[in-house]
Computed example of a mutant assay.
Amino acid sequence: MTNAQHVRMPNSFAYDISPENRLNDVEFYLRPSDRTGIESLLSRDDPAARNMPRLVEGNLRYKMRTAGKAIGKGIDQIALPMKRITYAESTGSVRKGILTMSIAERPGRIPVGSLLGATLLGMSRNQKEPLKKEDGCTVIVCVMKIETVEPV
């Protein structure tokens, strides 16, 4: 006879949400034009792209492999280039900016070629994901609002 005790799993583990058990559930969504833009950024033809951090490059490649196709009415609620994204960090700060398919930092813009931009790309409203900051700490980012921006 064994002396084993029944151990109750904490509530956080009540549902297995590992990728193997998601079946057709997709975490991120991209349009075909976004995939083309990411491929262009990753091609390293642009001298600025050669300095892209490996973490950003890995994140973008992961999203290219796993993202579902963004089509239909729900596309308005997906963080894609040329959309104004309002997001909150677990540190409590709420910020917003326009997601752009670039590497260059500009005021009011979130380039996809940055840690933040690569993390936000393809997320949907109320989705949370970890974000590794430049200083080495990790925070949780939650997409709060997504607005379409009219081209200038």
Rank of each mutant, 00 (worst) to 15 (best):
V152G: 02
N24C: 04
D76V: 12
L42H: 03
V139H: 07
N59P: 01
R8K: 07
I71W: 03
D46M: 13
N126T: 13
R31F: 07
F13V: 03
T36R: 14
T36F: 08
V152H: 05
G37D: 00
P107S: 00
Y87V: 15
L120Q: 07
S90T: 15
G37T: 08
A14D: 01
G58Q: 05
P111T: 15
N3H: 09
R50K: 13
Y15R: 11
L115R: 14
G92H: 03
H6Y: 09
V152S: 08
L55V: 14
C142W: 05
S33G: 04
S124E: 11
D34C: 09
R84Y: 07
M9L: 15
G68I: 11
S93M: 13
D76M: 09
K73M: 12
S102I: 10
N51R: 06
I146K: 00
I140A: 10
M144G: 13
V143D: 02
V56P: 01
N59E: 13
L41E: 06
P151A: 10
V56R: 06
P151N: 07
L121H: 03
A14R: 12
T36N: 07
I17N: 02
G68N: 01
I98W: 03
Q77M: 07
R95N: 10
A4F: 01
T119G: 12
Y62P: 04
S40C: 11
K73W: 09
K133E: 00
I17G: 00
V143T: 09
P107H: 00
M9H: 10
S12A: 01
G122D: 03
N3T: 15
D135V: 07
D46H: 11
G74E: 09
L116M: 13
S33E: 03
A104G: 14
M9K: 15
E105L: 14
A70V: 10
Y87T: 11
L121R: 04
M64L: 15
L42C: 03
